[in-house]
Design a protein around this nucleic acid. Structure first.
Length: 647
DNA sequence: CTAGGGTTAG
């Protein structure tokens, strides 16, 4: 063998150079006594041929040569075998890999850590964790690479406990984790407590400046919702790379802090980095969350550079759907060469949420014929479309279909759609029965759906029952108190309204201030009720007063039932007057040309009075208005709303 | 021989 490793072989020069640096170390543990037939010249030419095939990545020829060597009882050096294994890996040749494994082990390499690591890695990459684990268990000497490979394997398989357990075992074994180990094992952290421990370990080992470790830290802190910690890791950065930036931008985008994500994106550009697919996906997600259609359009231009990136295109689709520009979504969808279940689901849900139920169902039918297999999210969009259009029978049909045809068990959200469907149709008793019959426990959202139906159909008793259920599950939720109070108010039960308010005060539940925002000239203008900080607030109020005056002349009566405060007469109307969405709509009318759609985004559900207001404004001023609340979209046109007055 | 970032619903 010693002779073999000194042999000349048919490798290209650049390979020869990197090979030589390994040779000395590799030959130390090579099998000791070569078989007697070794020295014959035909054997050495066999090995030479084998080596050449391995480096030229000729898998079939290499395997034939390996068989011939085995018949002669000769073998090559471990570096060459590692090249062969890489070749198997690249070709996805599992069985060939196993044969190399057997060949290598029957020739005395079963103690060679380096080669076993390569084999373990091969099994891991083939997804054969058990075989990898067996090799790992049986190897006589494990080094930090062996441990890291296994930890990464378990992290990728989402076996988090196992990965963390292996880190502990690794430390106990005396192997020191390096940056490879940490960047892998960090992703297995699903508890803040673990993460903090690892972060300490990283500091002690002086590995915090490694970009891989840093991006993993930022990512995991973000995924646990610890954005300030994530930012802390970023702030300590002296040298970073694009992935680190992508981690932090993605972190804020995924935690619904689009503003901060966009700020960081600016900082990234200022630091001289160019956005790639991952960056743009997060930026689009930020635009989606903030309903920034114009900015989203600008991003679209950059997306074209990465034509046909599936994930990026999906994010673009979602942005156009959620920002209410369906024409653009359709254009993107049509042009996409590759469409997956997410692309279809995004479009179906987007159509449904925007009030185009029939179109959503049509698209689903097309998908059944020529698209990928629908998943639970797809069905959710379909059911949403049905409930939105009041298609009770169709909804039930698809609900049954999901179990029978696609083997998808209905989850809470699917039941929620059906409850919504029944509730909208006024079948409140059936909705309650379904809640009691469903396989999963109803949660606060389930009951809230019922509560919403009670409001529309003015069923106070059932509303109180539903609200009590919600308060058991989510006592902090201000929306429930408001909704309940509104329901009492709409049947003039003022004593109950006061009681709800008292309970709120007692439990320290604060109403989230209503906030609406609108994009004008790529600037975001935010309005909060009772807040007069907007520079043009006086002008806006003046316009609003005039508008309300004109609306009242054609029959608009402010619906004061939606005022929570115990105010009287005109004061009640005043407090309604300043609801943030009214301010935003008026501002949009002032600043946007008539043909532009006024797009307003709201942080809480729209109130009944503002809904009537928007419908009348749309009619009288001949404008299209879109208000997006956290759950639904309201497209106002010609005194009608796409939600059909149900929300 | 071992490592980090992105998409649908809720």
């Amino acid at each position: 063998m010693r002779a073999v490793s000194k042999r000349r072989f048919a490798a290209p020069h650049w390979l020869l150079r990197c090979r030589l640096s390994h040779t000395a170390a590799a030959s130390r543990n090579e099998p000791k006594s070569p078989p007697s037939s070794f020295s014959s010249s035909s054997s050495s030419s066999l090995i030479e041929e084998f080596t050449g095939c391995c480096y030229r990545r000729e898998l079939r020829a290499a395997m034939r040569a390996m068989d011939a060597m085995e018949r002669r009882g000769v073998w090559a050096d471990s570096i060459t075998y590692s090249e062969l294994i890489k070749c198997c890996l690249a070709r996805g040749a599992v069985e060939d890999g196993r044969r190399v494994h057997r060949h290598v082990f029957s020739n005395g390499y079963q103690t060679k850590t380096f080669l076993i690591n390569v084999l373990i890695n091969m099994y891991v990459k083939f997804g054969l964790l058990e075989e990898a684990q067996k090799l790992f268990d049986e190897m006589p000497e494990r080094n930090f690479v062996s441990w890291t490979t296994m930890i990464a394997a378990y992290t990728n398989a989402k076996l988090n406990e196992r990965a963390l357990e292996f880190l502990v075992l690794m430390l106990r074994d005396g192997a020191r984790p390096n940056m490879f180990t940490y960047s892998s094992v960090l992703r297995a952290c699903d508890r803040l407590w673990n993460l903090r421990q690892l972060h300490c370990g990283i500091f002690k080992a002086g590995l915090e400046s490694d970009v891989f470790v840093r991006s993993a830290l930022i990512d995991v802190y973000s995924k646990l919702g610890e954005l300030q910690n994530a930012r802390g890791v970023l702030n300590e950065m002296v040298t970073g790379d694009l992935v680190v930036w992508n981690s932090i931008i993605g972190g804020f985008a995924q935690n619904n802090d689009g503003c901060e994500a966009l700020n960081l994106f600016k900082n990234m550009k200022r630091a001289g980095f160019h956005a790639d697919q991952s960056t743009l996906t997060s930026v689009l997600r930020a635009c989606t969350g903030l309903a920034l259609l114009e900015l989203g359009r600008q991003v679209h231009v950059h997306v074209l550079k990465f034509d046909q990136d599936l994930i990026l295109n999906n994010a673009l689709l979602d942005m156009y759907c959620k920002c209410g520009s369906f024409e653009d979504a359709n254009i993107v969808f049509t042009r996409m060469v590759e469409k997956d279940v997410i692309s279809w689901s995004t479009m179906i849900a987007g159509l449904a949420q925007n009030g185009f139920s029939q179109e959503a169902l049509r698209l689903f039918e097309t998908m059944k014929v020529s698209g990928p297999k629908p998943n639970n999210v797809t069905i959710l969009g379909v059911l949403f479309a049905c409930s939105h259009a009041g298609l009770v029978e169709e909804g039930w049909y698809y609900f049954q279909l999901m179990k029978q045809l696609y083997g998808i068990d209905p989850e809470r959200e699917h039941y929620g759609c059906i409850i919504d469907l029944l509730g909208r149709a006024g079948k409140l008793d059936e909705a309650v029965r379904l809640i009691h019959e469903m396989e999963c426990e109803p949660d606060a959202v389930t009951w809230r759906t019922l509560l919403g139906a009670c409001r529309v159909h003015r069923n106070v008793d059932l509303a109180v029952y539903a609200a009590k259920q919600i308060q058991k599950l989510d006592p902090e939720d201000a929306g429930t108190y408001i909704l309940l109070s509104n329901i009492y108010a709409s049947s003039q039960r003022w004593a109950n309204v006061a009681e709800v308010r008292r309970t709120m005060r007692l439990r320290g539940v604060k109403k989230e201030p209503g906030c609406s925002w609108i994009e004008v000239d790529t600037q975001i203008h935010a309005f909060v009720m009772g807040d007069s900080s907007h520079p043009q607030i006086e002008e806006i109020n003046k316009h609003l007063s005039e508008l309300i005056q004109r609306l009242m002349e054609v029959g608009y009566v402010p619906d004061t039932n939606f005022v929570l405060q115990d105010l009287e007469g005109e004061q009640r109307e005043d407090s309604l007057r300043y609801h943030s969405e009214k301010l935003a709509i008026v501002f949009g009318m002032m600043r946007l040309p008539k043909e532009k759609i006024i797009r307003v985004r709201k942080n809480i559900r729209i109130c009944g009075d503002c809904h009537v207001f928007a419908k009348l404004v749309a009619k009288m001023e001949e404008r299209k208005i879109v208000i997006r609340d956290p759950i639904r979209y309201h497209h106002f046109q010609n005194e009608a709303c796409s939600c059909g007055d149900y929300w």
